[in-house]
Amino acid sequence: MKITIRKKRNITRIIRKITFISIVILMIFTLVASNEINHNQLSITAQPLNRCLSTDSLPCTDSSQQTTLQPFIPNPELNDQQRFLSAIAKKLPTIPQPGTYEYILLRAYGAVFVNQDVGIKLPSKDIFANEQETQDFQATLTMSHVDGTNDCYLQKLAADAFTKARIQQKIPLKSGYGFGDCTRTFKTNLIFWHKYANDQILAKVQQGKEIKILGLVAPPGTSQHLWGLAIDLRISNQKQRKALNQNGWFQTVENDVPHWTYVGLPEDNLLLFGFKKKIVRGITYWITPL
């Protein structure tokens, strides 16, 4: 019996679908074997493919079901320090050795490295040597102007989160303008350091003999402000703090009262990521467990 041209086309279409789906399923099982996708995600992914068998449309796609990798969650069986380090290892290529100057800085300012949002850009180390290194990094950032300020710029997701907090509550910058309160240059960081400290104190910090100064001012090239993820504010009530916390902003540098860090995590997750909750003179700080 002769097969009509229409039937031939239908058979060809079915063969193309089966071939396409076979390739996709093979890719999915390869990911499962490499632990890059879990079995729950596999079942979700397979559903639209099964439905695809009953339709004549090509290519076979389903935009309503998209597979996404689950966000990183530290192993709760690890201790605080291990959970924190496992989280920042996703962002920081090399973890400094305990006792080094870099480790001291990571302990003081490393809270930002737990940020799991792919839209946030983090440096590959926690200290910039000079203005050029700082500018090279800042040139890679997606920055956004904070509404209602003169010259306050932050990484876009941090700026958006801060704007949401300001919609909930009136939250003024420390200076009231923006210069120095938000993203800073290496030169500005250096000016602040020389306002409160000097080279002799820096040498003591590098040796681990002086750490209290880190709650007042950051050494040259080490400020979270260089990364576009910190802001200095004038906070006067708990409603303002709550609005900031609800949008991923926390105080992470002990004794630096106006300083806020964009961590990007819900407050309920901070303990899971190893942070230590410490209340000093009525202010809640979330300290790294290093």
Rank of each mutant, 00 (worst) to 15 (best):
P266F: 06
G180K: 02
A46S: 08
D151V: 06
V146P: 00
N130H: 02
P74T: 00
Q240G: 04
M1G: 14
V205D: 12
L105Y: 00
R16D: 11
Q97K: 15
T19Q: 13
Q207L: 03
L290F: 15
T30E: 05
V24C: 11
I127L: 13
L69T: 14
Y153Q: 12
S63K: 13
T19R: 12
G274S: 09
D80P: 09
W286C: 05
P219W: 02
T288V: 07
R184C: 02
D268N: 12
Y103W: 12
Y101D: 15
L173N: 04
G178S: 02
S86T: 08
P123D: 12
D151R: 03
W193M: 14
N38T: 06
N198V: 08
N130M: 00
H145V: 03
R166H: 00
I21G: 09
I235S: 04
V118F: 05
A159Q: 06
I37G: 01
T61N: 15
L270G: 10
S144F: 15
T261D: 03
D126Y: 03
S64W: 09
W193S: 15
F137W: 07
A89N: 06
A203Q: 01
R107A: 03
E77I: 10
P172Y: 13
G176Q: 10
D256T: 07
D126Q: 05
K7E: 15
F29N: 13
S57H: 11
K174V: 07
T61R: 14
A165C: 04
Q169D: 03
V280L: 14
N35T: 06
K212F: 08
V146H: 00
L122Q: 14
Q135L: 09
P219C: 08
L53F: 15
D268F: 02
I5R: 14
Q82G: 08
G99I: 00
I25T: 09
D268M: 05
E77M: 11
P266K: 06
Y262A: 05
P266M: 07
I201P: 03
V24M: 10
V118Y: 08
T252N: 05
A87V: 03
Q70M: 09
F275I: 04
L58C: 09
P74D: 00
Y101G: 14
N79W: 04
T134M: 10
V32D: 06
Q240D: 06
V24Q: 12
P289N: 08
K278I: 02
T261Q: 03
I18Y: 12
I191G: 05
A139P: 15
A108H: 10
S54Y: 13
N198I: 08
K278A: 01
V263R: 02
N255S: 13
Q132E: 12
G228K: 11
R184V: 14
Y101F: 15
L190M: 07
G264L: 04
T222P: 01
D136K: 07
M1S: 14
H194R: 05
A230Q: 04
L154F: 04
V24N: 11
I211F: 06
W260A: 01
K276F: 09
A158E: 12
I23N: 08
Y101N: 15
S124D: 14
I15F: 07
R166P: 01
Q70L: 11
